[in-house]
Structure formats: C-alpha cells, structure tokens
Simulated scan of single mutants.
Amino acid sequence: MDTKTLLELLCNGKGVSGYEYTIKDTIVSAFDKYSDEISVDNLGNVLALKKGSTKEDNIKIMLAGHMDEIGLMVKDIEDNGFIRFTNIGGIDPRTILGQEVIVHGKKDLFGVVGSKPPHLQDPSEHDKAIKMEDMTIDIGYSKEEVEKLVNIGDTITIRRELLNLQGDRVASKALDDRAGIAVLFECIKELGKIRHEADVYFVSTVQEEVSMAGALTGAYKINPDIGIAVDVGFGTTPELSKSDTIELGKGPGITLGGNIHPRLRQKLTEVAREYNIPFQMEISPGPTGTDARAMQITREGIPSLCLSIPLRYMHTSVEVIDMVDIKHTAKLLAFFIASISNDSLEGLLCY
C-alpha cells in the first residue's frame, strides 16, 4: 500500500475521539508489514515497533501521530424527528451549517445540518453567527423511526471524502492528524532502507483532540528516551500573518518553544540542513497543544520534539495539505533517528 492510499482510507473512514477503534484495523494492516512487533493497548493506541540494529539497551524513540478526528454527538431527538447535537473536540459552528453528515447509529444514516432560514430571522440575528444549539440534523425520519436507529451518544461525522486538488495537494476532513499517521507510515518504510540503533515506536494515538490521553498512556508504557509528535500546523492563507503560519510545500515546521528540548531541536535542524531537506520554524511559546506536551510531562519527563505538517483550514471538512510535505517530514524523521546513537544520546539530552 502506498502512503497516499493509506491516507485516503483513513480520512474517508470515521474515528471521532474515543471511537477510533473503527479505523484501528486499517492502521494495523498497513504497519504490520514493516514492523517487528505490533499491538493495541488498553486505551486503543496502535503501537508498531521497528527494532534497531543493536541487541541490548537500545535507545527508545516514540513517534506519535493521533488517529482521532473532531466530530459531533447526538444529545437529543425532538418530537418531530430532528436531532440535536453537540461537539467532540474543537469545532467552529460556522463551518458545519449546511453540511452533509453521517449519523453513526445502528447503521450509518445520511443527514443534513439545518437552521432557521435567513428570510425568517429577526433583523437582530442577521449579523450573528448561528449557535450550534440552534442547529439540527434532519435525516428525514419521524421520531419513532429515528429512535429505532439512533441513540443518545451516537457519533456524527461530516460526509466528506478525500479530494485531489491541483499538483500534489489534497483536501479532506480529518487530515488533522491522519496526515501525521501517513508520515509515520512513510517513515517506517524509509527506516527499512537505512541503519538505525534506536528501537522506534510508531504510535497512532487516541483522544488527542479531547485529552491527549493516548500519548500520556502510550509514553508511560514505552518510557522512551525521546518523544516526537507529528501533527499539523497552521498553513499560510491570505488572511493570516506569515509569522504565525508555515507554507505548504516547503517542508515541515520544526517547533520552537517551552515544550521542546533545545539540543534535540538543534540536532533536528542540523540533520535537515545536512540532507537538504526543506524545513520551516514554527513558534510555540506556550504548550504546543499536541502530543508533544503529553509526552514531555510523562513519568520523570521525556525530552520531546514536535514536527508540524503545514495544513490550511484546520478543524474544517476541507483541510488542505501538500503530499510533498509528507515525504519531507518522513525523511527528516528517518535521518534524525539514524543520527541518534547510544554514544551521542547523553550529550544531546544535556542542558
């Protein structure tokens, strides 16, 4: 399976935070061919281990990309059959009005998100964004029919499949962070071509969008020497400042900030320059809001890094990435991992 095919399968699938088990088998099937060991832990993380070339006391490096996506959840069924809903993860209500959705009840049910037409709104409502609590999902059934198929707590996802744009760019829901899973997949294939001392754990984590629980428990179990989160960063668009964004097609963003180990970050940039891999700097003075934060504060503290894939329109159903950045990010990770040895690790981790 090539990386783009895996990305399409994952993005077209469903896996809202807490319900990632629906795409677990796709990830296991893809990574199994390239792993020495693969397992699923108690929380649902998929852990694929690629062993290093040394036999004992190997360095352990954990790569984390989260497999969950933001979504919606049924909270009420009205007398007329309309479904009221709430959000799972950070959703801007302005982006869901008029969307096609899939209600994941006893079977998948097509529906649409609606609200009061503008013609019937009060003048005072015209310039205000419609709140989520004022929207409903219409699947076309009466309340009696809905209740046979839908329960309170069922998840809902936007109905969207991956689209090819021009060049190497694609648009989809859930590229945050299934693009990160694609990077991990590309990286494990790259590591099959080069020697590396470290044992590398490729962890597809759960629940990043709501709690980072998967990275916390995964890092506790593995207790790695180095943790690296692979997530997405804000891609440059006309309305955003270039200083706050990273550009598509120009390589991953290497994060600078309090969550990031300075010597490891310096080594990462040196490797990028050595192998002519394009990269950008991403500033995150506070918590990164990624699995890097969770890994950093696990156990006694794990030296951590964060690599960000440039992505436009984050947390919408039309997120956009450039597949070139997937390849650049994976190569940088692979060469960085190959550069870490038992002899060099202690010096890199010193402050």
Rank of each mutant, 00 (worst) to 15 (best):
T237Y: 04
Q207D: 12
Q266K: 15
G258R: 15
V232G: 03
N223L: 03
D244E: 15
F335Y: 13
S204A: 14
E208R: 09
L311F: 00
G253L: 08
D322Y: 02
V206K: 09
Y220Q: 15
I226V: 05
E239W: 05
L240M: 12
V203L: 08
I254M: 12
V320R: 02
T316A: 03
A272P: 00
P224M: 08
L333M: 08
T316S: 09
T236V: 03
Q280R: 07
L333C: 03
L216M: 15
D231I: 01
L307V: 01
K242G: 12
M295C: 02
A294M: 04
Q266I: 08
G251E: 14
G257M: 06
L332S: 07
R312P: 00
H315Y: 00
T329F: 02
Q296W: 01
T255C: 14
P310K: 04
I337R: 09
R263N: 15
I260R: 08
A229I: 01
A292F: 00
K327I: 05
R312I: 00
T245V: 01
V210I: 12
V318E: 15
S241H: 13
E300G: 02
A334I: 00
T288L: 06
I321A: 05
R312T: 00
D244V: 10
V320Q: 10
A229T: 05
R299P: 04
M295T: 05
Y220F: 10
A229K: 03
S284F: 00
S211R: 14
R293F: 08
T269S: 10
R265N: 13
D322C: 01
D225Q: 05
R273E: 14
F279H: 06
S284K: 10
G258W: 08
D325Q: 11
Y275G: 07
V203Q: 14
V324G: 06
G289L: 07
G218R: 11
G286E: 14
G218T: 10
I222P: 01
Y220A: 10
A213H: 11
G233H: 03
T237A: 10
K331Q: 14
G227F: 00
F336K: 10
V200Y: 08
Q296A: 08
K242A: 13
V324A: 12
T288N: 15
I326N: 07
K242C: 06
V206F: 02
T298C: 04
T255K: 10
V200K: 10
M295K: 06
M314P: 03
I228Q: 07
I277D: 08
